[in-house]
Write a protein that binds this DNA or RNA. Structure first.
Length: 409
RNA sequence: GCCAGGGUAGGGUAGUGGUUAUCCUAGGGGACUGUGGAUCCCUUGACCCGGGUUCGAAUCUCGGCCCUGGCCCCA
């Protein structure tokens, strides 16, 4: 027997239908905001991803040399590819550009709850705008996408300029370490690190910042800063939209290319991998040969959303099985075509089983059985049996199709 | 890369060194060639892989693979 590759999953029909339904709701919502779907290759030149995220990520990617000797990689995320697409094809399109995507990505990591080697992301990018209104739109879209799924989540919004301001006296490498500690909320580790480097005052500021969840508290720590206005405006826009969010100036997203506003969302019941959304404003296009275009975007961990949703009711779409005797078979074929054309999910026997066995099968998979034997075929009528209630009636074909159609909607 | 716990028919399980590996469920067929769920009968189907110990291994042991969760990382 061949095993499924590690960290991958198979999806059976019930689960696939649930995934498609959620995905469809997200698409609908994104379109309402004027975003249009794009699709990029599942593998790209390796350099695309190392330009964005550094050489260090190669060990966690499905990277390989193809038969022409080119270094390529299965995509570990989609933002870089979407920005590459923008630079290649849409540089001169009217700004701003609103795009969304849904696709699978691959990372070579140790699987655990909510973490797989093949996983799906739903994301959006707003390219060519650098205002609080742009930040607000993207955050609202992210919020509405998550809301449309019905999960409970905690949305946190921050701004990297605040922390950069405080950390500016530090050398580059220390800055990165401090941000990692803050992201983990490891205040003890932070304290140890900063006192070693003789930055005691900074520790007080950072502690205060990580505990600040209102604009006043934040500005009390950071003082006057050119980006304060941006944050004030963003908050007033988010408040006007009436969404729930928490200000969290300690978000650092572990990334160097984010430029300003950053946001994340978390859900319950996911164990260690509880982050379901990450995003912010960034500049990437110039890395791929474009202008230095400001952008803002996010990605939703689709699989984690599905885990957070839990098991849903299987699809309620009702089905019909057409059961026939040999004498009714040709007419039954005709009837099945009519039903399908009318939009009814219709199955017919393909095993040559007895009528009794066909009915036994129908009772397991369908809500209604349509029975066609010699008598029905001669009169061009069909017998409809409601399998849950056990009632049946024989009707002329036209009338029966109408009946079934309305009965199964 | 590290740690813990796991792996017996499609699903769920019993089985701590000894006949032909247990039971439930599911699938196929039949009793029943125009009517399902009940019942009965027949049937399909498993010890994750490999080495070792042993007269004998599902069982003990080692390695690997995979699963679940945690750490690390998280673009």
């Amino acid at each position: 027997m061949i095993q499924r590759p590690r960290g991958t999953r198979d999806f059976l029909p019930d689960e696939m239908e649930a995934r498609r339904a959620v995905e469809g709701d997200m698409r609908t919502k994104a379109r309402q905001y004027g975003y249009r779907e794009v699709c990029t290759p599942e593998f790209e030149e390796l350099e695309l991803f190392t330009l964005r995220s550094g050489e260090g990520i190669v060990s966690e990617m499905y990277a390989f040399q193809d038969k022409g000797g080119r270094w390529v990689s299965l995509r570990p995320e989609m933002t870089a590819a979407v920005l590459r697409l923008y630079v290649n094809e849409a540089r001169v399109w009217p700004k701003p550009i609103r795009w969304f995507y849904f696709g699978d990505c691959f990372r070579y990591e140790r699987p655990q709850k909510g973490r797989y080697r093949q996983f799906w992301q739903f994301g959006a990018e707003l390219i060519g705008a650098d205002t609080a209104a742009a930040d607000a739109e993207v955050i609202l879209l992210a919020h509405d996408l998550l809301s449309s799924t019905g999960i409970q989540f905690d949305l946190q919004v921050g701004h990297l300029a605040l922390m950069r301001h405080i950390l500016s006296p530090l050398p580059d490498e220390s800055r990165r370490q401090v941000r990692a500690l803050l992201d983990k909320r490891d205040m003890a580790g932070l304290s140890r690190f900063l006192s070693e480097g003789d930055y005691g005052l900074m520790e007080d500021q950072l502690t205060a910042l990580s505990e600040a969840h209102t604009l006043e508290d934040i500005f009390a720590v950071t003082g006057d800063h050119p980006e304060n206005e941006r944050l004030i405006e963003l908050c007033s826009l988010l408040d006007a939209a009436g969404i729930d969010y928490t200000l969290n100036p300690a978000i650092s997203r572990g990334l160097d290319y984010y430029t300003g506003v950053v946001f994340e969302a978390f859900a319950e019941g996911l164990g260690a991998e509880n982050q379901i959304l990450g995003g912010g404003s960034y500049r990437l296009a110039h890395l791929f040969g474009g202008d230095d275009t400001p952008s803002c975007g996010f990605a939703i961990g689709f699989d984690r959303v599905m885990v957070a949703l839990g098991d849903r009711e299987p699809s309620s779409a009702r089905r019909v099985v057409v059961a026939s005797t040999p004498a009714g078979r040709l007419f039954a074929t005709e009837v099945a075509r009519l039903l399908r054309r009318a939009g009814v999910i219709t199955e017919m026997d393909v095993t040559g089983r007895s009528l009794s066995a066909q009915m036994a099968h129908a009772s397991k998979t369908a809500a209604f059985a349509v029975i066609i034997g010699q008598e029905e075929a001669q009169k061009r009528s069909i017998t409809i049996k409601d399998l849950s209630r056990g009632m049946q009636q024989t009707l002329p074909l036209d009338e029966a199709v109408r009946e079934l159609f309305s009965g199964t909607r």
